[in-house]
Design a protein around this nucleic acid. Structure first.
Lengths: 245, 245
DNA sequence: TAGTTATGTAACAGAATGCAACAAAATCTA
DNA sequence: TAGATTTTGTTGCATTCTGTTACATAACTA
C-alpha cells in the first residue's frame, strides 16, 4: 500500500509530538490532532488509514468520538489510554475500536499493532495477503527478511540475537548512508524485531555494532561491511541485492 | 467481513418480525427462529455470525439454550429480555452471553451492540466457527478446528492437551501479531468457557509455550513457528492457509 | 610530540527467557 | 469411590541477551 496516513489524536502536546515523530521516523505520515474538530477536518480533508485515539481527551470523551467515527466512517481505530484496566479495554472494543493499547506503551508494541491493524484492513480490502518476502544479498551473505535467517558466504547459518537482527535491518534499509548512533537507536526501537524497554543510552550502539561485526565480518578488526564513520557513526558499506521470493 | 448473518430467536411473532425487518434494513441477513429446533437447523445448515436470543421463550428457557450453544458452538450471543433486573443481566453473562440488552430497546442501541460484538468476534479468536469446520495449514502442519486433530508434516497425529490446543487457537487467530503474555492468558481463558475464573499468574504462559513448542517445533531450541519477542511476548511467525472442508 | 577525543571491547550486572522438577488439580478407570 | 494417570501451574536455577562501565587503543589536533 502507499505510505500509511495515521491520525494521532491526543490532547497532550508532548505525547502528540512524541507519537507523531516516532511514526514519521518509521515511514508513516502522521497527522496530529488535539480534538474532535481537528479530527473531522483531517478525515474530511483527505485519506486517513488509521486513527490512534486517546481515550482521555480533556473535556471530550475519546470513546464517544470513537463511537461516532465508527458509525460514520469505516476507518480502523486503535484506542490509546493511560488506564489499562480490563473494563476500559472492553469499553474500547465495545465502541468499535480495532485494538487497544495502554500507556505507557512499548514503542515496538505500538508499531506492531499499527502494522497489524493496517495489514488486516488491507487484507480485508484486497483479500490477498502478501507478506514481506524479500531476501537481501550482500558480500556473499544472505538475509531472509521473512524467516530472519542469516546465511554466511559458505552457507552456514549464523544466529543473530534480536537486537543484532534489528541492527542489520536498519543498516540494510540505509546502505551507503552514514547513520548516527542516535538514528540507529531510534530505528532499532522501531524495527519491531528487536526490543528495548527504553531508549538506549551510552555506548550501547557501539557494543552492538561490535557484536554484529564479530558475527558477519571476516575480520572484525578490519570491517569491510559495517564501517565506522569517525565523528558520525556507522555505515553499511557494501552493495545490496534484493530478491523477491 | 461479509454481510453478517444474524439469527433472531424470539417466540413472539411480532417482535421477531420487527427485529428481523430492522436488521435487514441495516444491512444484515436476519434469520428468524422461534424455538431451539429452528435455532439448531439454522446453525447446522449454514454460517451464523451472531445470535440474538430472547431469554423468555415460552416453555423453553433462553438461558439454557444459550448455555448449550456456548458449549457446542462458539457463536457470539446477545441476550434479549423484557426483564432488566440486574440479576437477570448477571445470569445472562454467567451462561456465556457476549452482551445483554433489555426490552424495550432503542433500535440504535441494538445496532451498536450488534456491531460491537461482531467486531470483537472478528478480531479475537473468531477462528472457531466450528460449524464451518475450518482446517488450518502452516509450515506443513495441519490443525482441524472441528476435530481438534493436529497432524505433523509427516502426517503423524500429535496429541495436544486442552490448554495447548487453546494456545494454538489463539495464535492461529493472530498470525504475525506479537501477543503479550497477558493477552494470551486472557484469550486462553476466553476460548474455553465463557468465564475467566482466575488470571494465570507467574510464568504459566512461558511454560505452556514451551510445551507446545516441544510438540510442534522441529527443533524446540530454535523455534521457527512460535517465536519469542523479547520484552513483548510471543508471535506465531509463519503464514497460515485456511481451508473450508 | 603531547594532549585530546573517539572508538573497540572485555568484563560485569540486571533482566528476560527456557526448562526441569515438583505439586496441585482434573480426569480416567476399575 | 479409591487409586492411577494426565494435565497444568509454580518454583528455582541455568542460560541468553543486552546495556553499562572501565580501560586500551586509534585517530586527530595544535
Amino acid at each position: 500500500m502507499a505510505i500509511p496516513r495515521i491520525l494521532v489524536v491526543d490532547d497532550d502536546p508532548d505525547m502528540r509530538q512524541m507519537m507523531t515523530q516516532f511514526l514519521r521516523q518509521n515511514g508513516s505520515i502522521a497527522l496530529p490532532a488535539a480534538n474532535e474538530t481537528e479530527v473531522r477536518s483531517h478525515i474530511d480533508g483527505g485519506r486517513v488509514d488509521l486513527v490512534l485515539l486517546d481515550v482521555m481527551l480533556g473535556d471530550e470523551n475519546g470513546l464517544e468520538i470513537c463511537k461516532r467515527l465508527r458509525r460514520e466512517q469505516d476507518v480502523p481505530i486503535i484506542m490509546v489510554s493511560a488506564l489499562s484496566a480490563d473494563h476500559q479495554r472492553m469499553e474500547g472494543y465495545a465502541v468499535g475500536a480495532d485494538d487497544y493499547i495502554a500507556k505507557p506503551f512499548n514503542p515496538n508494541l505500538l508499531l506492531a499493532r499499527v502494522k497489524a491493524v493496517l495489514s488486516r484492513a488491507r487484507r480485508s480490502a484486497s483479500l490477498v495477503h502478501r507478506r514481506n518476502t524479500k531476501t537481501f544479498h550482500f558480500d556473499g551473505w544472505t538475509y531472509d527478511a521473512k524467516t530472519g535467517d542469516v546465511l554466511s558466504p559458505v552457507k552456514v547459518q549464523v544466529a543473530l540475537s534480536h537486537r543484532e537482527t534489528a541492527l542489520l535491518q536498519v543498516l540494510l534499509a540505509n546502505p551507503h548512508i552514514p547513520l548516527t548512533r542516535e538514528e540507529i537507536a531510534t530505528n532499532l526501537d522501531a524495527t519491531g524485531e528487536g526490543q528495548s524497554p527504553s531508549e538506549a543510552t551510552g555506548r550501547a550502539i557501539d557494543v552492538l555494532v561490535g557484536r554484529l561485526r564479530n558475527k558477519i565480518e571476516a575480520n572484525p578488526k578490519e570491517p569491510q561491511i559495517l564501517k565506522t564513520e569517525r565523528g558520525v557513526g556507522y555505515v553499511f558499506a557494501v552493495d545490496i541485492a534484493v530478491s523477491d521470493t
